[in-house]
C-alpha cells in the first residue's frame, strides 16, 4: 500500500477518479458510451477528444520543464499555428488534399522553427527560459493577429475539418494524433538515452556537459519539440472551429499545460519527468471543465475550482505539507530541501 501511495501517479489518478465519480453521481449515464453513425460517443470520449490539444501541448511542456525550463509561448504558438493553417487554406475549396498538406506542413514547420528560436535564446544566448519564452508569448500573439488581420478568419475548405473533427475507427481523429505524439515522446525518451540526457541536463547542466552530453542541443531540441506540439495543438483547435482567431486562440493554454505537468508529478525544478503523469494531469484539467459544464455549476466557477485543484495537488506534492498534515514523507523531504543548498546530511 505504501508503495502505491508513494508512486508519483497515485495522487493524480486518485484526483481524476474522484472527478469522474462526482460526474457519475450527478449523471448516472456518465460512463456509458454508444455508437452513433459509426462514431463512438459518450462523455469520456468527449473528454479525450477535447483534451487532445492540451495533452499534446503538455507533453511538449513536460520535456521543457524537465530541462529546468518553461515555455510560456505555447499559447501564442497555438494562435500562430491556427492562423497560418487557416490562412493557407482560406482561399482553397473543393476536396483536394494539396492545400491541407501545405497548411499542415507550413504551420508545423514555422512552429517548430519558433520553438527553436526559444531554444536558441535559452541554450546559446543563455537567457532564462521564463524570459526567453515571454518574448515570444507577447510578440507571438501580435504576429498571429497580424496574420489574421485581427479578424476571425473562417475556413470553407472541408478537408481541413478532419484534423480536429474527423473520425477514424469510430474514434475522434484528434485522439489518435495525441496518442501518436505521446507514443513518439515515450519511445524517444524511454527507449533511447534521450530521456536520461534530458533529466541529466535538467538536474545539472554543467555536470552534464562535462560528462559529454551536448546540453545545448538537448535544450534546443526540447523547445523545438514543444513548438511542434503547440503547432499540432493549434491546428486541431483551429480545425475544430474551422476558423482562425489570433486574439483568443490558445489563450491560457500555457498555464493549463504547466498545471498539467505539475499535477502529473514533474517538478518545475527540472530533472525527473513523467509523461504519463502529464497526460493524466491534462485529463484532470479537461474533465474538470467538462464536469463543471455538465453538472450545471455556473461556468464562471471553473476558474475557482481550477485554482483549488492546483493548490490541493501542489500541497499534496509538497513534502513540508505532507509532513505537517499526514506525518509521513517525514524529515527525509526536509533533509533533502536543506541538503540541496548547503552541506550533505551526513
Amino acid at each position: 500500500m505504501k508503495a502505491i501511495i508513494k508512486s508519483r501517479l497515485f495522487w493524480p489518478i486518485l484526483v481524476l477518479m474522484l472527478i469522474l465519480l462526482i460526474n457519475l453521481f450527478f449523471d448516472s449515464s456518465f460512463f456509458s458510451m454508444e455508437i452513433r453513425n459509426g462514431r463512438l460517443t459518450g462523455s469520456l470520449i468527449d473528454i479525450l477528444n477535447r483534451g487532445a490539444p492540451l495533452i499534446l501541448i503538455s507533453i511538449g511542456m513536460t520535456l521543457v520543464i524537465a530541462t529546468k525550463g518553461i515555455d510560456l509561448s505555447v499559447g501564442s504558438v497555438i494562435a500562430m499555428s491556427g492562423a497560418i493553417g487557416a490562412m493557407t487554406v482560406a482561399s482553397a475549396d473543393g476536396t483536394g488534399l494539396g492545400p491541407l498538406l501545405m497548411a499542415i506542413g507550413l504551420s508545423l514547420l514555422i512552429c517548430t522553427f519558433v520553438g527553436g528560436w526559444n531554444g536558441l535564446l535559452v541554450s546559446r544566448v543563455g537567457v532564462q527560459p521564463i524570459v526567453a519564452t515571454l518574448i515570444l508569448m507577447v510578440a507571438g500573439r501580435g504576429v498571429a493577429q497580424l496574420i489574421t488581420g485581427g479578424q476571425i478568419t473562417t475556413v470553407y475548405y472541408d478537408p481541413y475539418s478532419f484534423i480536429g473533427g474527423g473520425y477514424l475507427l469510430a474514434l475522434p481523429f484528434s485522439i489518435f494524433i495525441a496518442a501518436f505524439v505521446f507514443l513518439i515522446a515515450v519511445l524517444l525518451t524511454r527507449k533511447t538515452a534521450l530521456g536520461l540526457f534530458i533529466e541529466s541536463v535538467g538536474s545539472n547542466p554543467d555536470a552534464s556537459r562535462l560528462a559529454g552530453i551536448n546540453s545545448k542541443n538537448i535544450m534546443l531540441m526540447v523547445y523545438m519539440f514543444s513548438g511542434f506540439c503547440a503547432g499540432v495543438g493549434g491546428l486541431i483547435l483551429s480545425s475544430n472551429v474551422m476558423s482562425a482567431d489570433g486574439n483568443n486562440a490558445g489563450l491560457w493554454f500555457e498555464l493549463d499545460a504547466i498545471l498539467a505537468v505539475v499535477i502529473g508529478g514533474t517538478s518545475l525544478m527540472g530533472g525527473r519527468f513523467y509523461l504519463t503523469g502529464t497526460v493524466i494531469g491534462a485529463l484532470i484539467i479537461q474533465s474538470l471543465t467538462t464536469t463543471i459544464y455538465s453538472i450545471g455549476i455556473p461556468a464562471e466557477t471553473n476558474l475557482v475550482v481550477k485554482a483549488l485543484v492546483v493548490l490541493i495537488v501542489c500541497l499534496l506534492q509538497s513534502p513540508e505539507f505532507r509532513r505537517k498534515v499526514f506525518g509521513f514523507g517525514k524529515v527525509k523531504g526536509a533533509g533533502e530541501q536543506k541538503g540541496k543548498e548547503g552541506a550533505t546530511l551526513l
Binding site: 538515452a193 536520461l196 540526457f197 533529466e199 541529466s200 535538467g202 538536474s203 545539472n204 554543467d206 555536470a207 552534464s208 562535462l210 560528462a211 559529454g212 552530453i213 527540472g270 530533472g271 525527473r272 540541496k340
Partner: peptide, 22 residues
C-alpha cells in the same frame, strides 16, 4: 556543481559518460 547529477540515481550517474559516448 560540475560532477554529480543530484536528481539521478547512482546507476544513472555512473553510466552517463559512457552513454554519451554511445
Amino acid at each position: 556543481t560540475e560532477g554529480i547529477i543530484p536528481e539521478l540515481t547512482v546507476r544513472e550517474n555512473m553510466i552517463l559518460a559512457i552513454q554519451s559516448v554511445y
